[in-house]
Simulated scan of single mutants.
Amino acid sequence: MKPRKIPMRKDVVTSEMFPKKDLVRVVKNKDGEISLDPTSKANGRGAYISLNVDNAKMAKSKKVLDKAFSMKVSDEFYDELIAYVDHQQARRELFANDSE
C-alpha cells in the first residue's frame, strides 16, 4: 500500500510550507467577519499560520492578516490568535511527552 499524501499549506507569516495539521486556519466569511477555524472546514477565504507563538506575535506586529484579507483586523483578534496558538503549542508539548 502506498503512503498517504500529506496536505501541505503555506504559512502567511514565514511563507514556509507545513503539513496542514501543524497550522491554524484563519477565515474571512462573506460578511467580512474574521474568525479562527480549528476544523479547517468553515466557508470563506482562509489563511494559515503555524502553531508557533513567535510567528503569531510576528503576524500581529507586521499586520499580516490585514494584507492577506485586504481589510483591517482588530488587535483583539490578533491577541485571541496568539492565545489560541499558545494553548495549542502547550497541548502539543504536553501530549508529545505523554507518548514517549
Rank of each mutant, 00 (worst) to 15 (best):
R91E: 15
G44Y: 10
M58W: 05
Q88L: 11
S40P: 01
A96W: 13
T39L: 06
R91P: 03
D37S: 03
D98Y: 08
P19D: 06
D22H: 01
R45C: 08
M8C: 01
L36F: 10
A90Q: 14
I82L: 13
K57I: 11
A90Y: 12
Y84G: 03
R25A: 13
Y78E: 08
D31Q: 14
S70F: 12
D75C: 03
N52W: 04
E80K: 13
D79R: 14
K63M: 11
D66W: 13
N43D: 10
K21F: 03
R4C: 09
E93C: 05
V13W: 01
D86S: 15
D54Q: 05
E33C: 09
K30D: 14
A96H: 15
G46F: 12
D31V: 05
K72T: 15
K62E: 10
N97S: 15
L65I: 07
G46N: 05
P38G: 08
N43C: 03
L81W: 13
Y78C: 10
R4W: 08
E80A: 13
S40F: 04
V13G: 05
F69L: 06
V73K: 09
H87M: 12
S40T: 07
R4V: 12
Q88M: 13
K5I: 03
D98H: 07
P7A: 07
M58E: 14
N29I: 03
I6A: 00
N55V: 01
S35M: 11
M58N: 06
K62S: 13
N52M: 01
V53A: 11
L51N: 10
F69W: 09
R91S: 14
S35Q: 13
L23T: 02
F18A: 02
S61Y: 11
K41E: 04
L23Y: 01
V27S: 02
A59F: 09
A68T: 14
K30G: 08
G32S: 11
L94C: 06
R92W: 00
A42C: 02
S15Y: 09
F18R: 04
T14I: 01
F18G: 02
S70H: 15
F69V: 07
I82A: 14
S74Y: 13
A59S: 07
N29W: 00
V26W: 00
G32Q: 13
L36Y: 05
R9G: 00
K28Q: 12
V12N: 05
D37H: 06
V24W: 01
V64I: 15
L36W: 06
A42V: 04
M8S: 00
K57H: 06
D79P: 14
K20S: 01
L65T: 11
M8W: 00
P38Q: 08
L81Y: 12
S99K: 14
D98L: 11
G46R: 07
V73S: 04
P7W: 11
N55Y: 00
M17G: 00
K67M: 08
N43S: 10
D37E: 06
V26L: 06
